[in-house]
């Protein structure tokens, strides 16, 4: 290098004296910001707790979620041996809430995951390719978007019949259109950025551009959106079971439990409200977690 007259003074100093301070990678800095965010950390711990009591249900309760006894029907909260009371057939509520969470979480997270893969793919294609294919995808999605989500889920489930599989299928259908829309929008935005043009101008192929330039910039917002969809998904999937369209008795599931305990509201009012509290709590945690991710991923909020 020649003695460059254009050299900025600061760089000359830096060369000799400061060892280069390596800045962390993008995802690492996102992680650091997440750890410094108390609300997100707290709800993540709560969600981990919920995950623990559901997946590890046999570890936190000795009870059997299916067998009850007529002797112990509808006991109040604080009954010895049944600290959260019992349901209308005398089954321990704590046990059923632990086991019930398995179904509720599965029926909420699986449809969003399916929709994420299918909808994300369609959206990125529509957003990047555009033209006739993109238009076709988006117009078909418009039709499904024209149904209020709960109505569409109930309609599909109601016609296919109840059962966990149909409920998951119905919810996946419901969540594909919004995910396609979000991924289409962010992809179309990313495609217009100059760095994608610059990559094209240096002869990068379309697939390489999608892989290296578009996906990395698009995946974050799509994932954040999917997380916020889980909070909706929990509510709708439990709602389907609440209507008797999702999980079938005697399987424990929070929505289903809420419905059957509803009949006992005059006998054990507080016990009746418990499964719903779990739905509420889980949904809110996912919501807050998605908010936390969103602000942690926003590069420009840095410092």
């Amino acid at each position: 290098m020649s003695e460059a007259t254009y050299d900025l003074p600061s760089t000359r100093v830096a060369a000799a004296e400061q060892p280069a301070a390596p800045t962390p990678g993008y995802w690492k800095s996102v992680g650091q910001r997440l750890i410094r965010d108390p609300v997100t950390m707290f709800v993540t711990f709560v969600l981990l707790g919920i995950l623990f009591i559901t997946i590890g249900a046999p570890l936190v309760t000795n009870g059997d979620p299916f067998t009850g006894s007529v002797m112990t029907r509808l006991k109040p909260i604080g009954t010895p041996g049944h600290w959260l009371g019992t349901d209308e057939t005398g089954r321990d509520l704590w046990t059923r809430i632990c086991y019930g969470g398995r179904m509720s979480l599965l029926a909420a997270i699986l449809p969003v995951s399916i929709a994420l893969v299918v909808g994300g793919f369609l959206g990125v294609v529509a957003g990047f390719v555009g033209g006739k294919i993109g238009n076709l995808i988006m117009r078909v999605m418009d039709v499904f978007y024209a149904f209020p989500s709960i109505l569409l889920a109930i309609a599909i489930c109601g016609i296919l019949g109840n059962g966990l599989r149909n409920a998951i299928f119905a919810l996946a259908i419901v969540f594909i259109p919004p995910l396609v829309r979000v991924s289409e929008t962010v992809t179309a935005q990313a495609r217009q950025l100059d760095f994608v043009e610059a990559a094209r101008a240096s002869g990068t192929t379309t697939m390489q551009i999608i892989r290296h330039h578009v996906l990395a910039n698009v995946l974050g917002p799509i994932l954040v959106y999917a997380t916020s969809l889980i909070s909706v998904s929990i509510i709708i999937s439990a709602g389907l079971s609440f209507l008797g369209l999702g999980v079938t008795p005697p399987q424990p599931e929070w929505g289903l439990m809420l419905n059957s305990l509803r009949q006992a509201i005059y006998v054990q009012p507080y016990v009746a409200a418990l499964p719903g509290l779990m739905i509420f709590l889980t949904s809110m945690c996912f919501n807050l977690m998605s908010d936390g991710f969103r602000s942690a991923m926003d590069v420009r909020l840095n410092k």
């Binding site: 909070s231 509510i235 709602g239 809420l258 409200a273 719903g276 739905i279 509420f280 949904s283 919501n287």
Partner: peptide, 10 residues
């Protein structure tokens, strides 16, 4: 926004 409204009704 996180409220299951059927539960809230109850």
């Amino acid at each position: 926004v996180s409220l299951p409204h059927y539960w809230c009704a109850i």
